[in-house]
Simulated scan of single mutants.
Amino acid sequence: MKKNNQFSLIVQVNGAMISVILVFILISSITTFLSVSMTSDTVGQVLETSDLNKLFLYFFGTENMYFTQNNKEVKDIPLTKVGFQIATNLKINDAKTFFERELPGFSEFNTNIQVAGQGTDITTVPIESSPPMELLLKQKDAVPSDGNQTPPSNQTTDGKKIVYIYHTHSWESYLPLLQQASTPDDAVSSNNALNVVGVGDMLVKDLAAKGIGSEHSTIDAAEKLHEKGWTSNNAYQYSRGLVQEALATDQDLKFMIDIHRDSQRKTLTTTTIDQKSYARLDFIVGEANPNFKQNLQLAKDLHALAEKKYPGLSRGIFSKNKSTGNGVYNQDLSPRAILIEVGGVDNNLEELQNAMEAFADILSEYYWEKKNAKAF
Rank of each mutant, 00 (worst) to 15 (best):
F109L: 12
V342C: 10
N295C: 00
G344P: 08
L298D: 12
I212D: 05
N234C: 10
A288K: 07
F84Y: 08
I162N: 10
A358Y: 07
F7M: 14
Y58T: 07
V13S: 10
N291M: 01
F24E: 10
I113Y: 06
A304E: 07
I317W: 11
Q12W: 14
L242P: 09
A181K: 02
Y367F: 05
E134G: 10
L305C: 06
V199W: 05
N195R: 00
L207W: 12
A360T: 00
A355N: 05
A87W: 06
V285H: 04
Q6E: 15
N112K: 14
Y164M: 02
T68H: 08
N326S: 04
S232E: 07
L242E: 13
Q155L: 13
P104T: 02
L247W: 01
D206H: 12
E108M: 06
V46E: 03
N93I: 11
G147Y: 15
Y238S: 03
T231F: 02
A299L: 07
N354L: 00
I284F: 05
V243Q: 01
G286D: 03
L103F: 04
F84I: 02
H169P: 08
P126S: 02
S170T: 05
Y58H: 11
K293H: 13
F98M: 11
R261H: 04
D274I: 05
L175G: 00
H167T: 03
S107Y: 11
T324Q: 00
S314M: 04
L178S: 03
N110V: 07
D158V: 09
I162K: 03
F98D: 06
Q12K: 15
G83V: 03
S28R: 14
K161C: 01
A209D: 10
M133C: 02
V43H: 06
E172H: 08
S314V: 11
K75D: 05
L34H: 06
D186Y: 04
A337I: 10
G241P: 09
L136T: 08
K308R: 11
M133L: 04
L333I: 02
W368A: 00
L333S: 11
N110D: 14
F7V: 14
G327E: 01
P131C: 05
I165S: 12
N192E: 11
N289L: 03
S173Y: 13
K371Q: 12
T156R: 03
D332R: 09
T168A: 01
D252F: 06
T31N: 15
E215D: 13
T62D: 12
T272R: 01
E73M: 00
L175D: 07
L175T: 10
Q149K: 15
I165R: 06
W230C: 07
E134Q: 15
Q69Y: 01
V13I: 14
K322Y: 05
R336F: 13
I362M: 10
S319G: 00
E287Y: 12
Y310S: 00
Y236Q: 07
A304T: 00
L136E: 00
K72E: 15
